[in-house]
């Protein structure tokens, strides 16, 4: 892009917009550090008069934060592994193999993206129940091993951009298609796989409906649903609810900060133009 003539103007504008977008998060953090009396007396004050970090201790001790966190991580890691494995395999099959009926099946895959989850919710529940997965994190993890249309679509676009020569060279060396996939395609696709991994991590972290429908034992609740318990228990204590919200968001924000350069640069850089 050509150099911006008025960098100061651009900078100020970005600063304003970003500031506006960050305000709510600031309110969340600051509110979580106030005392209830202060919130009551003066809800509009920005900074707390007295910084009350003990709110956090209270949240962590009254709700089994670390138990929920563990469940969330099991869920996140399990479903990331599932999504990356299954979606990359399927996407390669759609991108780099020639076989009869491929495009028709791919069209079908795209069509499933249009299906509202509500339309399949009830029979799906019954099916997973029959498979003995009710009240188990497996009900939320196992389906990710069976692919997800959106991720398959993203990865396919990426695989399409790999140079054919590289793959052919490997094939001439006597590699099977699976070998080509594992040894050539996968190593070259790390950024795209990482994008899918992060998307799925965030999605699993946030999943509310899944636990709502499938989990009944609080010892298996992930954070996203455990926070609901905090809200109903503490509905009268904003400062604690906000502290819970911060604790709930913090790990994912940290993870994002660590990976953001990579992520923001490479997301769907194969792009959506298919």
């Amino acid at each position: 892009m050509r150099r911006v003539k008025t960098p100061r103007f651009a900078f100020l504008m970005l600063l304003t917009v970003t500031g506006l977008f960050s305000l709510p998060m600031g309110v969340m953090v600051l509110t979580s550090l106030k005392s209830p009396a202060e919130l009551d007396a003066n809800p509009h004050a920005w900074l707390p008069d007295r910084w009350q970090a003990s709110n956090y201790r209270e949240v962590v001790t009254t709700m089994p934060y670390f138990l929920y966190l563990r469940n969330t991580l099991v869920l996140c890691v399990g479903s990331v592994v599932g999504s990356v494995l299954s979606c990359s395999l399927v996407a390669y099959g759609f991108a780099r193999l020639r076989w009869r009926g491929r495009d028709r099946w791919f069209g079908l895959l795209i069509a499933t993206m249009l299906l509202p989850w509500q339309a399949t919710m009830i029979p799906r529940f019954l099916l997973l129940r029959e498979l003995g997965m009710y009240n188990s994190l497996a009900a939320l993890i196992v389906p990710t091993f069976l692919g997800d249309a959106f991720y398959i679509f993203l990865l396919r676009q990426f695989f399409l951009s790999l140079p054919e020569d590289l793959l052919d060279a490997a094939r001439l060396d006597g590699c099977s298609e699976l070998g080509v996939f594992v040894r050539i395609a996968i190593p070259l696709s790390k950024p795209a796989l990482a994008t899918v991994a992060l998307f799925q991590f965030v999605a699993a972290w946030n999943d509310f409906n899944g636990p709502l429908l499938y989990l009944s034992d609080p010892e298996k609740f992930p954070l996203a649903y455990g926070l609901e318990r905090l809200v109903s228990a503490y509905s009268t204590q904003t400062h604690l609810v906000m502290a819970g919200a911060v604790l709930f968001s913090l790990p994912i924000v940290l993870l994002f900060l660590l990976t953001q350069r990579m992520f923001l640069r490479n997301t769907v850089s194969g792009s959506i133009k298919g």
Partner: peptide, 19 residues
């Protein structure tokens, strides 16, 4: 201790889920 706002839904599902 369960979330109070949808305990009835949870309970119904747990009966249909067999647990």
């Amino acid at each position: 201790a369960m979330p109070g706002s949808n305990l009835d839904t949870k309970m119904f599902l747990s009966v249909t889920g067999g647990d």
